[in-house]
Each structure stands twice: as structure tokens, then as C-alpha cells.
């Protein structure tokens, strides 16, 4: 029984990581700029499509038709020569194999630019406007971004293969001294979890231990005073928006092998991530992380057949059910502070 529960716990971690990363970005944006960003899921989606683009670029190939060499049904054979392999040989093959993690290199600058562009181009005009209008404008933006991706990449999910070395399963049970084969866990999910944990730790360390982070935290507490002290807090908040976009984008890149991305993936995750943020408490970074993992793991437990036998359909609604209960019992969410979003 313990093994089963432990396995479900592990299964919840990868979804929980994705929720936590998106919720982290949402909370950063909300905490710094005070903007409720419904387009954040779209950033996750754009990240995922950075991975798609990167792989498409890597697998560009020249197609030459050999008229002398006919296939059995009489058409000329097409000779496909991948450019990367032609240029780099075996190293090119490795590049293609590791396209998903490598596309982080593309995703980071792209997301930073998109994030800063979004903030400067649109969001900054909405600081002073009511939350309802912020929700609406970012909701419209999310539709636009989703549709642009649909226009470019088509409506169907595009599967992304994971690197062959990371394809197997990790025998976590054996690592922990149990019998081998009791608890096996897909290696890529483990990678995803460790990656997310690393990102989360990096963001927290950045906010906690750097001067920039200190200024940002001060600005979150009292924006005006920091401004009066002669610090250009707006520029730092813009950069934080960029960082939040990068976090969402990286989460999207690394998630592609687990779920083939299409243009609706952003909204699918966003709706849940908003619930995650609210459960964690608006404006609380640790709350967002905790409730992201909590809801991911609860969702995993709820999809056990034993649980579903007792409460049919519980796996479909558990996240929303928990959100309703938490909001009614603890109106500020798990770790929410006083005075946030209470006007």
C-alpha cells in the first residue's frame, strides 16, 4: 500500500511542478505590478512552441530527387539530408536528440523579449485600471497569442520526443533500498521535477540574496517609498515581468515531451494555475509553490482507481473542489497575506 501511495505522490510531482512554475510567474507579476495576468498561460504555450520551432530548425533537411533510383512503385526516391548532420556529423545527431533541453537556449531570450515587450506595450497602461479590466485585456491578449500560434503551427498537437538517454524509467524504489522494480518512475518526469525545483530555488535565491532582488522585494512592500528613494522601480518590475515570462516559457519547453503542445495548452494550464494561485493566497510566492504541488499531488491521488470507485469523477473536479473549500474556509488562501486584493 505504501508503494502505491508513494508512486501516486511521485506521479503528482510533474504536474505539480508545472502548476507551481506557472503560479510562481503569475504571483511574481501580481506581487510586483499588481496585474492579474490572464495571458500568462499563453507564455507557457509560447515556451512550448519555442521547443517545437527549435526542433524544426534543427531538423531542416535538403530533399533531392534522384531520377535514376526508382522506388518499387515507380516514383523517384527522395534523398533527405539533414543539414545539421551534414555540417556537424555525429555532434549534429546529438543536438537533434537533445533538442528539447537545448531549446531552453532559444526560449530564454525569446521569452525575455516577449515578456518585456508585453509589459511595455500593453500591460503598463493597466496598472491603475480596475482588476476586471486587467483580466479582460490580458484575456483578449491570450486569445490573440493562442490564435497566432494556431495560424503558424496549425491546430493539432505536435509531439516532441525526449532525448533517448532520458526515455527509460528510474527505479526509485531500488535507490531508496526497496526491492527493485517496485517503484519505477519515468526518467523525464524526474528530470522535469528536478528542473522545476532548480528554477524555483533560483528565483527565490535571486529575490533573497541579490541587491536587485532586495530592491524588488522592497518595491513589492512599498512601491512609492522605493520610488522616492530615487530607484527606478518601474524598470525593475518590467524586468521581473520578463523573468516571470522566462519561468513560464521554460516550464513550457520542458513539458513538451510529456504533453504534445497545441494552441490551447496555455489556457488549459492557466485556468488551473489561477486556481492554484488563489488557493495558495494571492501575492504569496511560497503559497503558490506549495499549492501547486499540493494540487498536483491531490489530483494524482484522486485518479487512483480505488478512490474513483468511491467518488466517481473525483479526478475531474478535485482541484476545483479543493479551491472552493479553501476559499470558503480560509478566504485569503493557504498563505495569503492580509490586505492583498481586498478593496
Amino acid at each position: 500500500m505504501f508503494e502505491v501511495l508513494f508512486l501516486q505522490f511521485l506521479n503528482g510531482l510533474d504536474k505539480g511542478s508545472a502548476y507551481a512554475l506557472i503560479a510562481l510567474g503569475l504571483t511574481l507579476v501580481f506581487g510586483t505590478l499588481g496585474v492579474v495576468n490572464f495571458a500568462h498561460g499563453a507564455l507557457f504555450m509560447i515556451g512550448a512552441f519555442c521547443a517545437v520551432t527549435f526542433r524544426q530548425l534543427l531538423t531542416l533537411e535538403t530533399v533531392t530527387v534522384d531520377p535514376n533510383n526508382l522506388s518499387p512503385w515507380g516514383t523517384p526516391v527522395e534523398i533527405r539530408a539533414p543539414l545539421v548532420q551534414a555540417w556537424f556529423g555525429d555532434f549534429g545527431a546529438i543536438l537533434v536528440n537533445y533538442s528539447v533541453p537545448l531549446s531552453l537556449l532559444l526560449a530564454i531570450p525569446v521569452m525575455l523579449l516577449i515578456g518585456i515587450g508585453m509589459e511595455r506595450g500593453l500591460i503598463k497602461y493597466f496598472y491603475k485600471r480596475p482588476h476586471a479590466e486587467q483580466i479582460l485585456v490580458t484575456f483578449g491578449l491570450a486569445i490573440v497569442l493562442g490564435e497566432i500560434i494556431k495560424a503558424i503551427f496549425g491546430p493539432n498537437p505536435i509531439p516532441q520526443p525526449m532525448p533517448t538517454d532520458l526515455r527509460g524509467a528510474a527505479d526509485i524504489g531500488a535507490w531508496l533500498g526497496m526491492a527493485p522494480g517496485v517503484i519505477t518512475y519515468p526518467l523525464w518526469r524526474l528530470v522535469y521535477f528536478l528542473f522545476s525545483a532548480g528554477i524555483i530555488a533560483a528565483v527565490f535565491a535571486f529575490l533573497q540574496f541579490t541587491t536587485f532582488g532586495m530592491v524588488v522585494r522592497a518595491g513589492m512592500a512599498d512601491r512609492e517609498t522605493v520610488g522616492i528613494l530615487g530607484i527606478n522601480i518601474d524598470r525593475r518590475f518590467t524586468i521581473m515581468f520578463g523573468i516571470a515570462a522566462v519561468v513560464a516559457g521554460m516550464a513550457g519547453v520542458m513539458y513538451t515531451p510529456l504533453l504534445p503542445p497545441n494552441y490551447t495548452i496555455g489556457m488549459d494550464f492557466l485556468v488551473i494555475s489561477f486556481v492554484v494561485v488563489v488557493v495558495g493566497g494571492m501575492g504569496s510566492l511560497p503559497g503558490a509553490i506549495a499549492s501547486g504541488f499540493l494540487l498536483g499531488i491531490l489530483q494524482s491521488f484522486a485518479s487512483m482507481t480505488q478512490v474513483k470507485a468511491i467518488f466517481p469523477g473525483i479526478d475531474q473536479i478535485i482541484i476545483y473542489l479543493v479551491a472552493v473549500i479553501i476559499l470558503l474556509v480560509r478566504p485569503r488562501g493557504l498563505l495569503g497575506r492580509r490586505g492583498v486584493m481586498e478593496t
Partner: peptide, 29 residues
């Protein structure tokens, strides 16, 4: 239930109920 809260919390609560109905309509119901 939802009107116990206001602002964005109300939006999220109504969203949660609608998503629950939608998911249930597709599965158990």
C-alpha cells in the same frame, strides 16, 4: 457559495463551479 467572496475570488469560484460541471458532464454524468 460564490457570493461569499467578491472580486477576483468570486470570478475564480464561479470558474471553478463551471469547470466542475463541464468536467462532470464529460465524464461521470
Amino acid at each position: 457559495v460564490s457570493l461569499r467572496r467578491s472580486g477576483i475570488y468570486f470570478s475564480i469560484l464561479t470558474l471553478a463551479f463551471a469547470q466542475m460541471s463541464y468536467n462532470l458532464a464529460y465524464s461521470v454524468l
